[in-house]
Amino acid sequence: MEEMVMTDAAFAADAAAADAAMQELRLPMVTMRGIQKSYGGKPVLKDINLRVFAGDVLAILGPSGSGKSTLLRCLCHLESIDDGYIGVLGQTYAGEDDIGGVSYVAGEAERQILGHMGMVFQQFNLFPHMTVFENLMLAPVHVKHIPRDEAEATAIAMLRKVGLEEHRDKYPGQLSGGQQQRVAIARALCMHPDIMLFDEPTSALDPELTGEVLRTMRQLADENMTMLVVTHEMPFAHDVANKIMFMADGVVVESGSPEEFFEHPQQERTKAFLQSRL
């Protein structure tokens, strides 16, 4: 028994040391290498590479059909890659398997890796039959088995963060789109993710409701959350992101800092895209 405790303590120390080392070295939170994906023979992702470090806010821009949403969805296995490698916090999520194909890890290993990521969808995807509070409590209680009172405290804190405490007992259908999206952000945060993925989080919203969601996202970025954001919101990308990746036709056309990208775009394709967005 004593040995077990020792071992656990040693493990914990190791983990803490690893955490510290990761901060030091800024090891990548997300690595995607040589990502290939096609739908029915039509390639949508052609050899995409990206790395995201702790605290990075990566804005993925591009015209519709460029593959940017697909890339994000492949990262969290809502779609599957055909070829390439995906690593999350140093662990392999998808890579070459024993039979020469490419597959994602499964079962508990997958759940553990997904636990590092929170996803915010264009259509919110809240559970309509549950109240706001039940939406926030479901996964912490039934997936992570966190004690109910602890999960409640987190849920309340997250609702406060997105400014919706007074709506906790409403159903999603009773809220505006902007409020629903903020609940969706809070729901993801209740799982304490290390990386937040946003798939066009404001595209389904009326223009006057995008501000409140973008403010919440900006706040998260200020708290050093690692974020991958597929978006059409240029000012947000310019002001909040520290890296921009511009995709078109399944390839990365250009990437760099917001200054480089917006002030000094190198590629014709980028210039044309930026022109069309003015």
Partner: peptide, 26 residues
């Protein structure tokens, strides 16, 4: 909607939990 399954996947719900807690009630 498919989005309900996707949200459940991201939250780590198992297939049985997804059916029982998300899909069947709807």
């Amino acid at each position: 909607p498919k989005g309900q399954y996707e949200a459940a996947h991201m939250l780590g719900l198992s297939k049985v939990q997804t059916m029982w807690r998300v899909v069947i009630p709807q």
